[in-house]
Design a protein around this nucleic acid. Sequence first.
RNA 1: CCUGUCGUAGCUCAGUUGGCUAGAGCGUUGGAUUGUGGCUCCAAAGGUCAAGGGUUCGAGCCCCUUCGACAGGACCA
Length: 491
Amino acid sequence: MSTVRPEARLPRGFRDAFAADFLARRKAIDTICKVYAVFGFEPLETSSIEYLDALGKYLPDTDAPGGGVFALRDDDGEWIALRYDLTAPLARVVAAHPDLPSPFRRYQFGSVFRREKKPGPGRFREFYQCDFDTVGTASPAADAEVCAVLCRALRELGIPASDFIVRVNNRKLLNGVLDAARIDEPSRRLLVLRSIDKLDKFGIEGVVQLLGAGRTDPSGERTDGAKLEPAQIDLILGLLQCSQPDRAGTCDAAERLVRDSESGREGVAELREIHALLDAMDLPSSLVTFDTNVVRGLEYYTGPVFEAELTFLVEEEGEKRKFGSVAGGGRYDYLVERFTGNKVPATGASIGVDRLLAALAKQRGERAESLPGPVIVTAMDRERLADYQRMTNELREAGIPAELYLGGGGFRQQLKYADRRLAPVVVIAGSNEFERGEVTLKDMLAGKQLSEQITDKLVWRKEQPAQRVVPRSRLVAEVQEIVQRATRGSS
RNA sequence: CCUGUCGUAGCUCAGUUGGCUAGAGCGUUGGAUUGUGGCUCCAAAGGUCAAGGGUUCGAGCCCCUUCGACAGGACCA
């Protein structure tokens, strides 16, 4: 009889988070959410699953939804899907609760799911986002605040101002230039936006090719171009190159490009207002810049768009690389209207926590150090389990993380276990200690340091310089003292 | 989804034009040390050479298919 065993595997693009990563993420989320709260956003948690049409995904004529989302058919035949961001669910909540205060300012963190065909480093199918939005105002002040929140959050995470930049653009400006260039067909406008989005990937020549005849990648892959006239391409290039170090300068340059396009003029006007408000919040152009190349997604955004990028370089297999965008957002004045028919302007952004943490870990030399583990109470004499359990409990009552050794094996193995768990202290009590009413405490950290000078293992064991014998009644106090010394030393 | 490279022990990798029983380091386990982690020494366990098919007297190596990883491209609300 053969048993079919499942393979202990994980679908690609998903991962497990062990203690160090989990704690680092929770800490980052906590820091970010505190910033959101300071700016007056309140928490909201929505369900992980939504109806597919509420997410904005419509079924093609096939019987399965298109790529990108994890969807399944419910018992009643309706398509439901895992959320792929936190914004669409917010729109649903706002549409379903007309009694909410307006503007409604909420933040939310949680994992979102995307059915990526090709996940890679920094690109997963489940990842954490910290999102914040203001729903119900068209005021550019809300957009300026988005930038301020992003800056503050990144600063609170310990990133110096010189290591990141927030870029702002306006979709109305992009549309204005498309108008000015007389590119009318929606499909071609989309192609142009896509090409602009690839600027940092292929450089200016690559974008020119994509706007014109097309581009053949070194890998041999051919991409069709937008087939624009040279004059049109020049206009787009003008847009790509009009960003200035200072925001006002960029506005001036952009204004000349959009000519008489109404949308373009509106876009520039909004940027000017945002600029003034950023000044009022002491956010200089070096921190929040206007960058006419930012596209951020192809539909969905209707006005200002934001992107936060880490600017330091990361060493990767000998090559220095930019890590790229760690947060993004923008104004979307259409999402709620989809449900209710009422125009409800909204703006916000989202921080990609996993990407951000990965970048920081890379920069600060790989591994986040593991935190100290619990005190381990060893069980040398299995007949005295109750005594060991009592000691463990006393430590816990005092708030010291402690664990009674529950595994099998000899005493040597118990110490190996304690070592692996990064225990700061090991409590030892055998017949010797019990007879005299004492316990032995082993300071694992001190032991580690002293062990560098070991010459003779047998002598080392006999002397045990990192151990002390204390009265049983002093157990908690003495352990406390060693633990405090250890945590002070490590942090 | 397209193109390319790769897949050998838990991990990192050797493995000669296709030729005897597929190796090393690290890790794991046991012992030296009947009550002591981290140093040292000794020993052991651990492999369907990704899977399936083909060529060959003979395949880890060559050919085909599938799966997976990596890199680039397409797509990315």
